[in-house]
Amino acid sequence: MEHKGMNLTLKVWRQQNANDKGKFVTYNVKDVSPDMSFLEMFDVLNEQLINTGDEPIAFDHDCREGICGMCSMYINGRAHGPMKGTTTCQLHMRSFKDGDTITVEPWRAKAFPVIKDLVVDRTSFDKIIASGGFVSVNTGNAQDANALPIPKDDADASFEAAACIGCGACVASCKNSSAMLFVSAKVSQFALLPQGQAERTDRVLNMVKTMDEAGFGNCTNTGSCEVECPKEISLANIARMNREYLMATLKK
């Protein structure tokens, strides 16, 4: 139970704004409790910076319980750090050792330009959803919820794809900055459900088109995205989207 505080060296990417070139700055953080989350360690560092008159490090975060998808650090070469199935906010300092040097970078991708320090712009994900990640049903159009039985296996598989939190770790960890895992998770969620059938063809065509326009790279099936995904979204979704896309192309 009793842990000694750790002393850490942090190399953090600092960039004033989108036009700034940016650089790494080294900081020392002392007496870090192993029970702290990674972001709480950043809070402590920021408090230090404020007290010494420096500008604190900007980073994205909100719910701090691993579900909103806002936190986004690339820690020692790993999206969300070294733990499997874990967002940065749920990564605890006990995953590190006293004396460690930790390098923290923002998500790197043309489609995710840096806004400041570790904060990047992920609106391209919203644009992809706006181009087809929905079922076109206006409020009030619905029939009774149980009028449409859905096999449990399909519903469960759809849920697993829908569990994506849109954090962008897949893009960040992919050597090509490909957004295939994100897009395929949404395509799969609806492809697996009867509600999604009416727009199945257009959905995948439009979403892939928007994805390509946003400047993401191409998937080369290295599988990093699946390993780094905090919600462990499966690569099988990418295969499904490829299939959907081929079928849609043949149809249209």
Binding site: V137, A142, A145, N146, K152, D156, F159, L193
Partner: peptide
Amino acid sequence: DQCVAQGVPFAREYGGLL
């Protein structure tokens, strides 16, 4: 009703109902 129509994957029983 609305959420199901939107494709919200609620938990279901083996019979396919909610």
